[in-house]
Write a protein that binds this DNA or RNA. Structure first.
Lengths: 311, 311
DNA sequence: TTGAAAGCGCTAACAC
DNA sequence: GTGTTAGCGCTTTCAA
């Protein structure tokens, strides 16, 4: 009977049908705990998210990734366990992961501090490239942030802009590093000055502040690459309060393609990344690893430009 | 030994210490599956979120609720199972919930279609008041949307506005209904006209469209109550493109107090609701029910006004 | 190919 | 109060 439920290859057709009939008649549902106890697999996957309350769940990009993960796992036999990784008590998460509660883990928003998870003897797939760590040891899925940033910058250049500033993100996050790199590459390729850099923390408020600092330099600026839409939307406030217009005075490109870019006037030109697909892919790769398949360590998802009225 | 782990009341001090010493020395971690199988409790709680991809996870309010739930459960022995309720296959969710996978469930974003969950013979706590259903049968936690909407409207009136429009939300959601009710109450109390109503779906784009429809009526409007910040931010676009200014021509108040209200210029006056606390409270109530305690069916959380530059 | 039986690691019920 | 034992509902192994 167990053999039928688990689709064992060597069972007679007759018996399969008989058992299946009984199953649906009795409304039988296998007991997860018993199955887990006997098979020594939990059929559960942990989704680890850092506590950083300020950003984690208020970031639509992150939210989409979670959604993708959940959507994919819903089609599998795995259950999704959400775990908030407390920063004050990181051992708790580690103990949970190693306590035989889950078969594998998905870790999103991989900050510099998160390296340690990769060392755990548990199948893990990361969202975002690991920073300052040998990538060949871990499995991860990431959007092509470098290419996306180049796309954004090239677009600004194609619009005739030459004095292009950037509001970069935290440099301990892969997205923060890679988008700055892409901008630098594009600027260098065209022999443009790449000193107009200010940093934010990916929040709208930090975008406003960064833009103010940029404008205070009192040098010509006719283009802005905000490395996410939230900071881009925030930058609007600083640009407008300085009496400048978008895109006439300063053309603006964002990154992420979330609703923040649509909530502002004019709507923000931005780089779209497949955030739901990123979550889906992470989950898929982990499930494949758990099934014993060999999969690539790194998976990079393409980005593309969404042109709206801010450029 | 089991008695020590589970804190049974009748154990000698000596033996407790001896066992605990052994536990930490052997690095013992209780096996969840075995415990669950023997005790017939799963120690897991499901967080059910409707699929409605467009809104669910891109709504910062919703995200905060999830975060609150996760934060609270992290402090308990319960594990959080995220379940996406497929709208095309609702039975799947129901089967999961009834399959003995979890001890109880938390259901957020309770649309009119979700009634059925309340019928399940499983402890459930809802986020948001159930619509069109006997509330005495279910447990729920909700923000005081009516009072919050009155607060918003009274504030507009106190600013000297008399022609106050509203962009209401879907009328099959408690938040959509209650915020409209609060506005009506406040308008009636001051003998003001309450016909300036348009509806949106809580997205920024729908806010823009609703505001355009309002302006197309060609009647005087000097105040706007957008029933969430996303629609409020969207309304800015329509107001500005009509050559009007905020707050001089039209004072605007939002609802939710999320980042959308901060991303726009001028920053949006809004009604704050304790979204993380809402999640925390939902989880707390469910855990208490599971512990056999008697708890109130309805819990209402207070809201308050955050005054910024849009009024 | 299929039936039977031995655990998986724990809790709960029962004696002592 | 505390040691002991019988299952919880499955998977897996071993015979047949």
């Amino acid at each position: 009977m167990s053999r039928v439920v688990n689709g064992s290859p060597r069972v007679t057709k007759d018996i399969i049908e008989t058992v299946n009939a009984a199953i649906s008649e009795l409304n039988y549902v296998p007991n997860r705990a018993a199955r887990s106890l006997a098979s020594r697999r939990t059929l559960a996957i942990a989704l680890v998210v850092p506590e950083t309350a300020a950003r984690v769940f208020t970031d639509p990009f992150f939210a989409s990734v979670v959604q993708g993960v959940a959507l994919y796992l819903a089609e599998t036999e795995y259950t999704l366990n959400m775990v908030i990784a407390s920063e004050t008590n990181p051992d708790k998460t580690r103990r949970f992961l190693m306590g035989g509660n889950v078969d594998g883990a998905l870790v999103v928003s991989h900050h510099s501090g998160d390296h340690s998870y990769a060392q755990l003897p548990l199948p893990i797939v990361f969202g975002g490239r690991p920073v300052g760590e040998d990538p060949s040891n871990s499995y991860y899925v990431d959007a092509d942030n470098v290419a996306g940033a180049e796309l954004a910058t090239e677009h600004l250049i194609s619009r005739g802009r030459r004095n292009i500033a950037i509001i970069a993100g935290p440099q301990d996050m892969p997205g923060g590093v890679d988008r700055l790199t892409g901008w630098r590459l594009a600027m260098a390729k065209h022999g443009l000055d790449d000193t107009l850099i200010e940093y934010g923390d990916f929040s709208p408020a930090s975008g406003t502040e960064a833009m103010r600092r940029l404008l205070m330099r009192r040098v010509p600026i006719d283009g802005l690459f905000a490395t996410n839409d939230q900071m881009g939307a925030g930058a609007y406030a600083a640009i407008l309060e300085a009496g400048l217009t978008i895109p006439a005075s300063i053309a603006v490109v964002g990154f992420d393609d979330d609703q923040y870019g649509l909530a502002v006037t004019p709507p923000l030109t931005t780089v779209h990344q497949p955030s739901i697909e990123l979550g889906t892919t992470m989950a898929k790769i982990l499930v494949e690893r758990l099934a014993g398949l060999t999969v690539d360590h790194a998976t990079t998802l393409a980005t593309d430009l969404v042109i709206r009225q801010s450029t």
